[in-house]
Design a protein around this nucleic acid. Structure first.
Length: 503
RNA sequence: GCGGUUGUGGUCUAGUGGUUAGGACGGUAGCUUCCCAAGCUACCUACCCGGGUUCGAAUCCCGGCAACCGCACCA
Protein backbone atom coordinates (compact mmCIF):
# COMPACT_ATOMS: atom_id res chain seq x y z
CA UNK A 1 0.00 0.00 0.00
CA UNK A 2 1.17 3.51 -0.70
CA UNK A 3 2.17 5.80 2.10
CA UNK A 4 -0.75 8.16 1.53
CA UNK A 5 -3.29 5.39 1.13
CA UNK A 6 -2.21 3.82 4.37
CA UNK A 7 -2.37 7.16 6.17
CA UNK A 8 -5.85 7.81 4.77
CA UNK A 9 -7.06 4.49 6.12
CA UNK A 10 -5.58 5.11 9.55
CA UNK A 11 -7.14 8.58 9.60
CA UNK A 12 -10.52 7.32 8.45
CA UNK A 13 -10.70 4.71 11.15
CA UNK A 14 -9.59 7.13 13.82
CA UNK A 15 -6.16 5.66 14.53
CA UNK A 16 -4.37 8.96 14.16
CA UNK A 17 -4.57 12.39 12.60
CA UNK A 18 -2.50 15.57 12.36
CA UNK A 19 -2.26 17.60 15.54
CA UNK A 20 -3.88 21.06 15.61
CA UNK A 21 -5.73 20.22 12.42
CA UNK A 22 -8.32 23.00 12.68
CA UNK A 23 -5.48 25.51 12.61
CA UNK A 24 -3.93 24.01 9.54
CA UNK A 25 -1.98 21.27 11.35
CA UNK A 26 1.52 21.24 12.73
CA UNK A 27 4.03 19.20 10.75
CA UNK A 28 5.57 16.32 12.62
CA UNK A 29 2.93 16.18 15.36
CA UNK A 30 0.16 13.61 15.42
CA UNK A 31 -2.70 12.75 17.73
CA UNK A 32 -3.66 9.15 18.29
CA UNK A 33 -7.39 8.44 18.32
CA UNK A 34 -9.12 5.66 20.25
CA UNK A 35 -8.01 2.72 18.10
CA UNK A 36 -4.53 4.12 17.55
CA UNK A 37 -4.05 4.76 21.23
CA UNK A 38 -5.28 1.28 22.07
CA UNK A 39 -2.96 -0.29 19.50
CA UNK A 40 -0.03 1.77 20.70
CA UNK A 41 -0.65 0.74 24.28
CA UNK A 42 -0.79 -2.90 23.19
CA UNK A 43 2.57 -2.51 21.43
CA UNK A 44 4.08 -0.86 24.49
CA UNK A 45 2.64 -3.58 26.71
CA UNK A 46 4.05 -6.29 24.47
CA UNK A 47 7.46 -4.59 24.51
CA UNK A 48 7.46 -4.24 28.29
CA UNK A 49 6.29 -7.79 28.80
CA UNK A 50 9.00 -9.17 26.54
CA UNK A 51 12.03 -7.17 27.59
CA UNK A 52 11.29 -6.87 31.28
CA UNK A 53 10.66 -10.59 31.08
CA UNK A 54 14.37 -11.07 30.42
CA UNK A 55 15.27 -10.58 34.06
CA UNK A 56 13.72 -9.95 37.43
CA UNK A 57 16.19 -7.12 37.90
CA UNK A 58 14.87 -5.05 35.03
CA UNK A 59 12.47 -2.31 36.08
CA UNK A 60 10.42 0.30 34.35
CA UNK A 61 10.51 3.88 35.60
CA UNK A 62 8.72 7.02 34.50
CA UNK A 63 11.09 9.98 34.38
CA UNK A 64 10.49 13.66 33.67
CA UNK A 65 10.71 14.58 30.01
CA UNK A 66 12.38 17.95 30.55
CA UNK A 67 16.15 18.00 31.03
CA UNK A 68 18.08 20.84 32.69
CA UNK A 69 20.81 22.28 30.54
CA UNK A 70 23.58 20.67 32.58
CA UNK A 71 22.32 17.25 31.54
CA UNK A 72 22.40 17.85 27.82
CA UNK A 73 25.75 19.59 28.13
CA UNK A 74 27.24 16.52 29.80
CA UNK A 75 25.58 14.10 27.40
CA UNK A 76 27.03 15.91 24.43
CA UNK A 77 23.66 16.86 22.98
CA UNK A 78 24.10 20.59 23.41
CA UNK A 79 27.30 20.55 21.45
CA UNK A 80 26.24 18.03 18.86
CA UNK A 81 22.81 19.44 18.30
CA UNK A 82 23.85 22.99 17.51
CA UNK A 83 25.72 22.87 14.26
CA UNK A 84 25.72 26.26 12.57
CA UNK A 85 24.30 25.92 9.07
CA UNK A 86 24.91 28.08 6.04
CA UNK A 87 22.85 28.26 2.91
CA UNK A 88 23.80 29.46 -0.53
CA UNK A 89 21.58 32.27 -1.79
CA UNK A 90 22.38 31.30 -5.36
CA UNK A 91 21.80 27.54 -5.52
CA UNK A 92 19.96 27.11 -2.19
CA UNK A 93 22.12 24.23 -1.05
CA UNK A 94 22.83 24.18 2.67
CA UNK A 95 25.92 22.99 4.51
CA UNK A 96 27.34 22.67 7.92
CA UNK A 97 29.48 25.69 8.59
CA UNK A 98 32.43 23.67 9.84
CA UNK A 99 32.55 21.72 6.56
CA UNK A 100 32.57 24.90 4.55
CA UNK A 101 35.25 26.51 6.69
CA UNK A 102 37.48 23.48 6.88
CA UNK A 103 40.03 24.84 4.42
CA UNK A 104 40.48 28.27 5.91
CA UNK A 105 40.11 27.26 9.53
CA UNK A 106 41.06 23.63 10.21
CA UNK A 107 40.24 23.95 13.89
CA UNK A 108 36.54 23.91 13.24
CA UNK A 109 34.04 26.46 14.48
CA UNK A 110 33.29 25.19 17.95
CA UNK A 111 32.46 28.02 20.30
CA UNK A 112 32.05 30.64 17.61
CA UNK A 113 28.81 32.53 17.28
CA UNK A 114 26.93 32.49 13.99
CA UNK A 115 27.89 36.10 13.26
CA UNK A 116 31.56 35.34 13.91
CA UNK A 117 31.37 32.43 11.50
CA UNK A 118 29.66 34.69 8.98
CA UNK A 119 32.51 37.14 9.32
CA UNK A 120 35.05 34.39 8.69
CA UNK A 121 33.20 33.32 5.55
CA UNK A 122 33.20 36.86 4.26
CA UNK A 123 36.83 37.62 5.17
CA UNK A 124 38.05 34.48 3.51
CA UNK A 125 35.90 34.88 0.40
CA UNK A 126 34.50 31.40 0.87
CA UNK A 127 32.55 30.14 -2.12
CA UNK A 128 29.60 27.79 -2.19
CA UNK A 129 30.93 24.22 -2.41
CA UNK A 130 28.04 23.35 -4.67
CA UNK A 131 27.80 26.10 -7.31
CA UNK A 132 30.99 28.04 -6.67
CA UNK A 133 29.23 31.39 -6.24
CA UNK A 134 30.18 33.70 -3.42
CA UNK A 135 26.63 33.77 -2.16
CA UNK A 136 26.70 32.11 1.25
CA UNK A 137 24.20 33.60 3.64
CA UNK A 138 24.64 34.35 7.31
CA UNK A 139 24.95 31.13 9.30
CA UNK A 140 22.14 30.24 11.65
CA UNK A 141 22.27 27.88 14.60
CA UNK A 142 20.68 24.59 13.82
CA UNK A 143 19.46 22.92 16.99
CA UNK A 144 17.42 19.78 17.01
CA UNK A 145 16.48 20.20 20.66
CA UNK A 146 13.49 22.20 21.80
CA UNK A 147 14.82 24.77 24.26
CA UNK A 148 12.69 26.05 27.10
CA UNK A 149 12.83 29.17 29.21
CA UNK A 150 13.40 27.89 32.69
CA UNK A 151 12.06 29.68 35.75
CA UNK A 152 10.69 33.15 36.20
CA UNK A 153 13.89 34.99 35.32
CA UNK A 154 14.13 32.96 32.13
CA UNK A 155 17.89 33.12 32.28
CA UNK A 156 18.47 29.44 32.66
CA UNK A 157 17.67 26.94 30.00
CA UNK A 158 16.12 23.50 29.92
CA UNK A 159 15.31 21.21 27.02
CA UNK A 160 12.65 18.75 26.04
CA UNK A 161 14.38 15.38 26.15
CA UNK A 162 15.75 14.52 22.69
CA UNK A 163 15.93 10.86 23.73
CA UNK A 164 14.59 8.95 26.71
CA UNK A 165 17.93 7.30 27.48
CA UNK A 166 19.42 10.20 29.42
CA UNK A 167 16.78 9.89 32.13
CA UNK A 168 17.84 6.30 32.76
CA UNK A 169 21.46 7.34 33.23
CA UNK A 170 20.35 10.03 35.65
CA UNK A 171 18.25 7.49 37.55
CA UNK A 172 21.00 4.92 37.85
CA UNK A 173 22.40 5.93 41.24
CA UNK A 174 18.91 5.93 42.76
CA UNK A 175 18.07 2.59 41.24
CA UNK A 176 21.30 1.22 42.64
CA UNK A 177 20.44 2.50 46.11
CA UNK A 178 16.94 1.08 46.17
CA UNK A 179 17.91 -2.19 44.49
CA UNK A 180 19.87 -5.16 45.69
CA UNK A 181 23.30 -3.90 44.67
CA UNK A 182 23.76 -6.37 41.89
CA UNK A 183 24.54 -6.17 38.21
CA UNK A 184 23.10 -6.46 35.67
CA UNK A 185 20.46 -3.88 36.47
CA UNK A 186 17.95 -2.86 33.84
CA UNK A 187 16.09 0.43 33.60
CA UNK A 188 13.27 0.68 31.12
CA UNK A 189 11.53 3.84 29.97
CA UNK A 190 8.60 4.26 27.63
CA UNK A 191 8.25 7.94 27.00
CA UNK A 192 8.38 10.82 24.62
CA UNK A 193 11.40 12.19 22.84
CA UNK A 194 11.25 15.62 21.23
CA UNK A 195 13.25 16.79 18.25
CA UNK A 196 12.84 19.93 16.26
CA UNK A 197 13.09 18.22 12.89
CA UNK A 198 13.64 20.62 10.03
CA UNK A 199 11.64 18.52 7.63
CA UNK A 200 9.32 16.03 9.32
CA UNK A 201 8.34 13.43 6.77
CA UNK A 202 6.52 10.19 6.23
CA UNK A 203 4.02 10.55 9.05
CA UNK A 204 5.16 8.40 11.95
CA UNK A 205 8.77 8.04 10.76
CA UNK A 206 10.01 11.58 11.32
CA UNK A 207 8.08 13.22 14.09
CA UNK A 208 8.78 16.13 16.39
CA UNK A 209 7.29 14.28 19.34
CA UNK A 210 7.49 10.52 19.36
CA UNK A 211 7.51 7.58 21.72
CA UNK A 212 10.61 5.57 22.47
CA UNK A 213 10.74 2.38 24.46
CA UNK A 214 14.23 1.85 25.77
CA UNK A 215 15.87 -0.63 28.07
CA UNK A 216 19.27 0.33 29.45
CA UNK A 217 21.07 -2.66 30.90
CA UNK A 218 23.87 -1.70 33.30
CA UNK A 219 26.35 -4.55 33.60
CA UNK A 220 29.86 -5.65 34.40
CA UNK A 221 31.56 -6.47 31.08
CA UNK A 222 33.71 -9.12 32.74
CA UNK A 223 30.68 -10.91 34.12
CA UNK A 224 27.31 -11.02 32.38
CA UNK A 225 25.95 -14.53 32.93
CA UNK A 226 23.46 -15.51 30.24
CA UNK A 227 21.95 -18.75 28.96
CA UNK A 228 23.61 -18.33 25.60
CA UNK A 229 23.06 -21.95 24.61
CA UNK A 230 19.30 -21.29 24.61
CA UNK A 231 19.71 -18.88 21.70
CA UNK A 232 22.81 -20.29 20.01
CA UNK A 233 21.01 -21.95 17.10
CA UNK A 234 18.69 -19.04 16.26
CA UNK A 235 18.97 -18.02 12.62
CA UNK A 236 19.54 -14.29 12.33
CA UNK A 237 19.25 -12.18 9.15
CA UNK A 238 22.35 -10.06 9.60
CA UNK A 239 24.16 -7.62 7.38
CA UNK A 240 27.61 -7.08 8.81
CA UNK A 241 29.58 -3.88 8.28
CA UNK A 242 32.33 -5.92 6.65
CA UNK A 243 29.80 -7.48 4.24
CA UNK A 244 28.57 -4.05 3.26
CA UNK A 245 32.14 -2.88 2.72
CA UNK A 246 32.42 -5.76 0.27
CA UNK A 247 29.35 -4.58 -1.61
CA UNK A 248 26.76 -6.89 -0.09
CA UNK A 249 23.31 -5.42 0.50
CA UNK A 250 21.20 -8.46 1.33
CA UNK A 251 21.39 -9.97 4.78
CA UNK A 252 22.92 -13.38 5.35
CA UNK A 253 21.23 -15.87 7.61
CA UNK A 254 23.66 -16.99 10.25
CA UNK A 255 23.20 -18.60 13.63
CA UNK A 256 23.89 -16.73 16.81
CA UNK A 257 26.75 -19.14 17.47
CA UNK A 258 28.35 -18.31 14.13
CA UNK A 259 28.14 -14.60 14.91
CA UNK A 260 30.53 -15.10 17.82
CA UNK A 261 33.15 -16.68 15.63
CA UNK A 262 35.28 -13.71 14.60
CA UNK A 263 35.40 -12.46 18.16
CA UNK A 264 34.11 -8.98 17.34
CA UNK A 265 30.77 -9.48 19.03
CA UNK A 266 30.62 -10.52 22.68
CA UNK A 267 28.17 -13.16 23.85
CA UNK A 268 26.00 -10.73 25.77
CA UNK A 269 25.60 -8.63 22.66
CA UNK A 270 24.57 -11.50 20.38
CA UNK A 271 22.23 -12.86 23.05
CA UNK A 272 20.30 -9.60 23.05
CA UNK A 273 20.41 -9.37 19.29
CA UNK A 274 18.50 -12.65 19.32
CA UNK A 275 16.01 -11.28 21.82
CA UNK A 276 15.45 -8.24 19.61
CA UNK A 277 14.96 -10.44 16.58
CA UNK A 278 12.54 -12.70 18.40
CA UNK A 279 10.57 -9.71 19.64
CA UNK A 280 10.09 -8.44 16.12
CA UNK A 281 9.30 -11.86 14.68
CA UNK A 282 7.38 -13.59 17.47
CA UNK A 283 5.77 -10.72 19.34
CA UNK A 284 5.15 -8.17 16.60
CA UNK A 285 4.55 -10.95 14.09
CA UNK A 286 6.79 -9.53 11.40
CA UNK A 287 7.92 -12.16 8.89
CA UNK A 288 11.60 -13.03 9.36
CA UNK A 289 12.39 -12.22 5.74
CA UNK A 290 11.24 -8.64 6.32
CA UNK A 291 13.64 -8.15 9.22
CA UNK A 292 17.26 -7.15 8.80
CA UNK A 293 19.87 -6.70 11.49
CA UNK A 294 22.17 -4.08 10.06
CA UNK A 295 25.52 -3.43 11.63
CA UNK A 296 26.61 0.21 11.56
CA UNK A 297 30.20 0.88 10.60
CA UNK A 298 32.65 3.18 12.35
CA UNK A 299 31.56 6.22 10.37
CA UNK A 300 27.85 5.69 10.85
CA UNK A 301 27.91 4.81 14.50
CA UNK A 302 27.19 7.44 17.12
CA UNK A 303 30.41 8.48 18.83
CA UNK A 304 29.41 6.86 22.12
CA UNK A 305 28.61 3.46 20.63
CA UNK A 306 31.14 0.65 20.51
CA UNK A 307 28.74 -1.64 18.67
CA UNK A 308 25.52 -0.81 16.91
CA UNK A 309 23.05 -2.95 15.00
CA UNK A 310 19.83 -1.42 13.75
CA UNK A 311 16.76 -3.63 13.64
CA UNK A 312 15.24 -2.77 10.31
CA UNK A 313 11.91 -3.79 8.83
CA UNK A 314 11.11 -3.72 5.14
CA UNK A 315 8.16 -1.35 4.86
CA UNK A 316 6.47 -1.27 1.46
CA UNK A 317 4.90 2.17 1.89
CA UNK A 318 8.31 3.69 2.59
CA UNK A 319 10.15 1.80 -0.07
CA UNK A 320 12.36 -0.61 1.84
CA UNK A 321 14.17 -1.33 5.06
CA UNK A 322 13.69 1.26 7.79
CA UNK A 323 15.10 1.44 11.29
CA UNK A 324 12.57 0.54 13.97
CA UNK A 325 14.87 -0.45 16.80
CA UNK A 326 18.53 -0.71 17.65
CA UNK A 327 20.99 -2.40 19.96
CA UNK A 328 23.73 -0.08 21.21
CA UNK A 329 26.73 -1.07 23.24
CA UNK A 330 27.59 2.27 24.83
CA UNK A 331 30.36 1.06 27.10
CA UNK A 332 30.87 3.25 30.15
CA UNK A 333 30.57 6.47 28.16
CA UNK A 334 27.37 7.75 29.77
CA UNK A 335 28.04 7.04 33.42
CA UNK A 336 31.60 8.32 33.08
CA UNK A 337 30.44 11.53 31.40
CA UNK A 338 27.66 12.17 33.90
CA UNK A 339 29.88 11.19 36.81
CA UNK A 340 32.53 13.69 35.80
CA UNK A 341 30.11 16.50 34.96
CA UNK A 342 27.93 16.14 38.03
CA UNK A 343 30.69 15.38 40.49
CA UNK A 344 28.58 12.47 41.68
CA UNK A 345 30.33 9.13 42.03
CA UNK A 346 28.60 6.77 39.62
CA UNK A 347 30.92 3.82 40.06
CA UNK A 348 29.43 1.03 42.16
CA UNK A 349 30.64 -1.93 44.14
CA UNK A 350 28.52 -5.02 43.54
CA UNK A 351 28.54 -7.54 46.37
CA UNK A 352 31.79 -9.57 46.29
CA UNK A 353 33.03 -7.80 43.17
CA UNK A 354 35.49 -5.03 42.46
CA UNK A 355 34.39 -1.44 42.09
CA UNK A 356 33.31 -0.60 38.56
CA UNK A 357 31.67 1.97 36.33
CA UNK A 358 29.00 -0.23 34.76
CA UNK A 359 28.78 -0.58 31.01
CA UNK A 360 25.51 0.04 29.23
CA UNK A 361 23.73 -2.06 26.66
CA UNK A 362 20.87 -0.06 25.20
CA UNK A 363 17.86 -1.67 23.54
CA UNK A 364 15.84 1.00 21.82
CA UNK A 365 12.53 0.72 20.05
CA UNK A 366 10.46 3.26 18.12
CA UNK A 367 6.86 2.62 19.11
CA UNK A 368 5.27 4.88 16.50
CA UNK A 369 7.40 3.48 13.73
CA UNK A 370 6.50 -0.03 14.79
CA UNK A 371 2.83 0.87 14.67
CA UNK A 372 3.24 2.12 11.13
CA UNK A 373 5.19 -0.96 10.10
CA UNK A 374 2.50 -3.23 11.54
CA UNK A 375 -0.16 -1.40 9.55
CA UNK A 376 1.96 -1.50 6.43
CA UNK A 377 2.75 -5.19 6.65
CA UNK A 378 -0.54 -6.39 8.08
CA UNK A 379 -3.09 -4.64 5.91
CA UNK A 380 -4.20 -6.66 2.92
CA UNK A 381 -6.54 -5.45 0.24
CA UNK A 382 -8.91 -8.00 -1.21
CA UNK A 383 -11.03 -6.14 -3.73
CA UNK A 384 -13.26 -3.79 -1.76
CA UNK A 385 -12.40 -5.40 1.54
CA UNK A 386 -9.40 -4.75 3.71
CA UNK A 387 -8.03 -7.21 6.20
CA UNK A 388 -5.51 -6.38 8.90
CA UNK A 389 -3.58 -9.44 9.96
CA UNK A 390 -2.57 -8.19 13.38
CA UNK A 391 -1.37 -10.58 16.07
CA UNK A 392 -4.34 -11.02 18.38
CA UNK A 393 -2.40 -9.82 21.43
CA UNK A 394 -1.87 -6.46 19.68
CA UNK A 395 -5.40 -5.96 18.35
CA UNK A 396 -7.07 -2.83 19.78
CA UNK A 397 -10.34 -4.74 19.88
CA UNK A 398 -10.05 -8.41 20.80
CA UNK A 399 -13.65 -9.40 20.22
CA UNK A 400 -16.58 -7.76 18.46
CA UNK A 401 -20.10 -8.83 19.34
CA UNK A 402 -22.94 -8.54 16.82
CA UNK A 403 -26.64 -9.09 17.34
CA UNK A 404 -27.78 -10.56 14.03
CA UNK A 405 -30.89 -8.41 14.36
CA UNK A 406 -30.47 -5.32 16.48
CA UNK A 407 -33.82 -5.49 18.22
CA UNK A 408 -34.54 -9.13 19.02
CA UNK A 409 -30.90 -10.03 19.75
CA UNK A 410 -29.55 -6.76 21.10
CA UNK A 411 -30.17 -7.47 24.73
CA UNK A 412 -28.43 -10.85 24.65
CA UNK A 413 -25.51 -9.30 22.75
CA UNK A 414 -25.06 -6.57 25.32
CA UNK A 415 -25.04 -9.19 28.05
CA UNK A 416 -22.24 -11.08 26.30
CA UNK A 417 -20.22 -7.88 25.91
CA UNK A 418 -20.65 -7.09 29.60
CA UNK A 419 -19.58 -10.61 30.58
CA UNK A 420 -16.44 -10.50 28.42
CA UNK A 421 -15.45 -7.04 29.58
CA UNK A 422 -15.85 -8.10 33.18
CA UNK A 423 -13.31 -10.81 32.40
CA UNK A 424 -10.88 -8.21 31.11
CA UNK A 425 -11.43 -9.13 27.47
CA UNK A 426 -11.55 -6.11 25.18
CA UNK A 427 -15.01 -6.60 23.65
CA UNK A 428 -17.06 -4.16 21.62
CA UNK A 429 -20.66 -4.18 20.43
CA UNK A 430 -21.64 -3.30 16.88
CA UNK A 431 -25.30 -3.43 15.93
CA UNK A 432 -25.36 -1.00 13.02
CA UNK A 433 -25.70 -1.89 9.37
CA UNK A 434 -25.77 -5.38 7.98
CA UNK A 435 -23.86 -8.30 9.42
CA UNK A 436 -21.48 -8.46 6.45
CA UNK A 437 -20.62 -4.81 6.83
CA UNK A 438 -19.85 -5.32 10.48
CA UNK A 439 -17.51 -8.22 9.73
CA UNK A 440 -15.75 -6.08 7.13
CA UNK A 441 -15.35 -3.15 9.50
CA UNK A 442 -13.78 -5.34 12.15
CA UNK A 443 -11.48 -7.07 9.66
CA UNK A 444 -10.14 -3.67 8.69
CA UNK A 445 -9.00 -2.82 12.22
CA UNK A 446 -7.59 -6.26 12.92
CA UNK A 447 -10.17 -7.63 15.34
CA UNK A 448 -9.29 -11.33 15.48
CA UNK A 449 -12.68 -12.68 16.55
CA UNK A 450 -16.31 -11.73 15.95
CA UNK A 451 -19.25 -13.19 17.83
CA UNK A 452 -22.79 -13.23 16.47
CA UNK A 453 -25.92 -13.64 18.53
CA UNK A 454 -28.89 -14.97 16.56
CA UNK A 455 -32.39 -16.34 17.02
CA UNK A 456 -31.12 -19.71 18.17
CA UNK A 457 -29.04 -18.10 20.91
CA UNK A 458 -32.08 -16.53 22.51
CA UNK A 459 -34.56 -19.37 21.89
CA UNK A 460 -34.75 -21.51 25.06
CA UNK A 461 -36.35 -24.33 23.09
CA UNK A 462 -33.59 -24.55 20.50
CA UNK A 463 -30.67 -26.98 20.87
CA UNK A 464 -28.32 -24.07 20.15
CA UNK A 465 -29.73 -22.00 22.99
CA UNK A 466 -27.05 -20.02 24.83
CA UNK A 467 -24.51 -20.65 22.10
CA UNK A 468 -23.07 -18.11 19.68
CA UNK A 469 -21.28 -18.09 16.36
CA UNK A 470 -17.56 -17.45 16.75
CA UNK A 471 -15.96 -16.29 13.53
CA UNK A 472 -12.24 -15.95 12.97
CA UNK A 473 -10.77 -13.04 11.06
CA UNK A 474 -8.10 -14.87 9.13
CA UNK A 475 -9.94 -18.05 8.12
CA UNK A 476 -13.53 -16.75 8.13
CA UNK A 477 -14.36 -20.09 9.75
CA UNK A 478 -17.45 -20.14 11.94
CA UNK A 479 -18.03 -22.26 14.95
CA UNK A 480 -20.85 -22.67 17.45
CA UNK A 481 -19.60 -22.06 20.98
CA UNK A 482 -21.46 -22.03 24.31
CA UNK A 483 -21.49 -18.59 25.94
CA UNK A 484 -20.12 -20.09 29.14
CA UNK A 485 -17.10 -21.41 27.22
CA UNK A 486 -16.22 -18.02 25.72
CA UNK A 487 -14.06 -16.87 28.58
CA UNK A 488 -11.67 -19.78 28.38
CA UNK A 489 -11.68 -19.60 24.63
CA UNK A 490 -11.06 -15.85 24.27
CA UNK A 491 -8.92 -14.86 27.25
CA UNK A 492 -5.64 -16.05 25.62
CA UNK A 493 -6.19 -13.66 22.70
CA UNK A 494 -4.88 -10.67 24.64
CA UNK A 495 -1.97 -12.40 26.36
CA UNK A 496 1.49 -11.04 25.55
CA UNK A 497 4.21 -13.53 24.61
CA UNK A 498 7.11 -13.70 27.05
CA UNK A 499 10.67 -14.80 26.49
CA UNK A 500 11.83 -18.15 27.76
CA UNK A 501 14.87 -17.35 29.82
CA UNK A 502 16.40 -19.61 32.40
CA UNK A 503 19.40 -18.42 34.30
C1' G B 1 15.53 24.63 5.10
C1' C B 2 15.59 24.58 -0.71
C1' G B 3 13.14 23.13 -5.52
C1' G B 4 8.91 20.82 -8.04
C1' U B 5 3.75 19.17 -7.62
C1' U B 6 -0.77 19.49 -4.97
C1' G B 7 -4.90 21.13 -1.47
C1' U B 8 -13.38 20.30 -2.81
C1' G B 9 -17.81 16.27 2.70
C1' G B 10 -14.85 11.01 6.88
C1' U B 11 -12.59 8.70 1.97
C1' C B 12 -12.02 8.91 -3.53
C1' U B 13 -13.34 12.53 -6.74
C1' A B 14 -16.53 16.12 -10.74
C1' G B 15 -16.40 21.11 -11.29
C1' U B 16 -11.06 26.39 -14.82
C1' G B 17 -14.82 33.27 -13.13
C1' G B 18 -21.88 33.49 -12.22
C1' U B 19 -23.48 25.71 -10.23
C1' U B 20 -29.28 24.80 -5.34
C1' A B 21 -20.90 22.86 -5.59
C1' G B 22 -22.51 16.91 -8.57
C1' G B 23 -21.30 11.69 -7.86
C1' A B 24 -19.43 7.24 -5.58
C1' C B 25 -18.03 5.04 -1.18
C1' G B 26 -18.89 5.97 4.03
C1' G B 27 -21.81 7.34 8.45
C1' U B 28 -26.72 7.88 10.95
C1' A B 29 -32.04 6.50 11.33
C1' G B 30 -35.77 3.31 9.51
C1' C B 31 -37.76 -0.88 6.45
C1' U B 32 -36.38 -5.84 5.02
C1' U B 33 -36.47 -13.10 10.14
C1' C B 34 -30.29 -10.19 7.63
C1' C B 35 -23.95 -14.83 9.02
C1' C B 36 -19.62 -11.88 5.14
C1' A B 37 -19.31 -4.13 2.56
C1' A B 38 -27.06 -7.06 -0.49
C1' G B 39 -31.63 -3.94 -1.44
C1' C B 40 -35.03 0.33 -0.55
C1' U B 41 -36.16 5.29 1.89
C1' A B 42 -34.62 9.59 4.40
C1' C B 43 -30.92 12.28 6.50
C1' C B 44 -25.47 13.91 7.54
C1' U B 45 -20.88 16.07 6.11
C1' A B 46 -16.78 19.91 1.90
C1' C B 47 -14.30 24.31 -1.55
C1' C B 48 -6.89 24.53 3.80
C1' C B 49 -6.16 29.76 6.00
C1' G B 50 -5.41 35.12 5.07
C1' G B 51 -5.02 39.07 1.68
C1' G B 52 -5.71 40.91 -3.46
C1' U B 53 -7.97 41.35 -8.60
C1' U B 54 -13.22 41.44 -10.10
C1' C B 55 -19.97 43.61 -10.25
C1' G B 56 -18.97 38.44 -8.87
C1' A B 57 -13.51 33.75 -6.84
C1' A B 58 -13.66 26.68 -5.24
C1' U B 59 -11.83 28.59 -10.02
C1' C B 60 -7.09 34.05 -11.36
C1' C B 61 -2.75 36.54 -8.39
C1' C B 62 0.25 37.02 -3.71
C1' G B 63 1.47 35.24 1.18
C1' G B 64 0.95 31.49 4.93
C1' C B 65 -0.03 26.41 6.43
C1' A B 66 -0.10 21.29 5.18
C1' A B 67 0.83 16.92 2.16
C1' C B 68 3.60 14.25 -1.71
C1' C B 69 8.32 13.71 -4.66
C1' G B 70 13.54 15.10 -4.95
C1' C B 71 17.89 17.53 -2.34
C1' A B 72 19.93 18.48 2.39
C1' C B 73 19.47 16.76 7.46
C1' C B 74 18.57 12.43 10.75
C1' A B 75 23.55 13.59 17.03
Amino acid sequence: MKNEELYALLRRRGFLWPAAEIYGSAAGLYDYGPLGHALKRRIEGAWESWFLGLSEDYYRIEPAEILPEAVVRASGHLENFTDPEVSCAHCHASFRADTVLEKVRPGGVDGLSPSEIGKLIEENLVRCPNCGERALELPRPFNLMFGLDWGAAGKERAYLAPETAQASFLAFHRMWDVGRHALPLGIAVVGHAYRNEIAPRQVLFRMRCFTQAELQIFFDPTSFPLPFESVAEEQLPVLRATDRANGLSAPRTVTARELLRDGALPEFYVFHLVQEFRFFRDVLGIPAERIRLLEKNDAERAFYNRLQFDVEVSVESLGGFREIGALHYRGDYDLTRHGAASGKELAVTPTDRPRIVPHVLELTFGVDRALWALADLGLEKDGERTLWRLPSHLAPVSVAVFPLLAKPHGEAARAVVATLRAEGIEAQLDDSGTIGKRYARMDEVGTPVCITIDGETVDPAHPNHATVTVRSRDTKAQERVAIRALRERLAPLGRYPRPRVST
